[in-house]
């Protein structure tokens, strides 16, 4: 599978879909891309879609936590969706699911995130 990042904006929100492998190298380039997109759109709701994620390590966790801190500062909401057994295990080890909520789908996030704003 191809490694890629895709952005889809909605209202005040942004869906970031990361596919393939998210390693230390990719984390660095994606961080810049996400940064630019967030400057441009100023989202208050951020959803990471990992449906097609095949590999992640702690550098990817750092990337998510970094964006969580930014959005949290402005009183926004961050969510995660599309975890498989493998990625959920990595997320559970790092305790990230205790601070970032998992959603069943993008649609569910759009509905619920607004209430949590």
């Amino acid at each position: 599978m191809e490694n890629k990042i895709k952005f889809t904006a909605f209202d005040e929100g942004l869906v970031i879909k990361i596919s393939g492998e998210l390693d230390s190298m990719k984390t660095m380039t994606y961080r810049d891309k996400i940064h630019r997109e967030m400057i441009k759109l100023g989202p208050r709701m951020l959803l990471f879609d990992f449906k097609d994620l095949q590999f992640i390590d702690s550098s990817g966790i750092g990337l998510i936590l970094g964006r969580f801190n930014e959005i949290d500062k402005i009183g926004g909401v961050v969510g995660i969706t599309g975890l498989n057994d493998y990625s959920r295990k990595i997320f559970q080890i790092t305790g990230i699911l205790q601070i970032i909520e998992e959603y069943q789908s993008t649609a569910q996030f759009k509905k619920k995130a607004r209430i949590n704003l």
């Binding site: 961080r31 390590d57 080890i93 790092t94």
Partner: peptide, 15 residues
């Protein structure tokens, strides 16, 4: 400074 999560050794040990 590199936005490391400090979880690498913990992840390796757990897996």
């Amino acid at each position: 400074d590199l936005e490391r999560a400090g979880m690498g050794l913990t992840i390796m040990e757990t897996l």
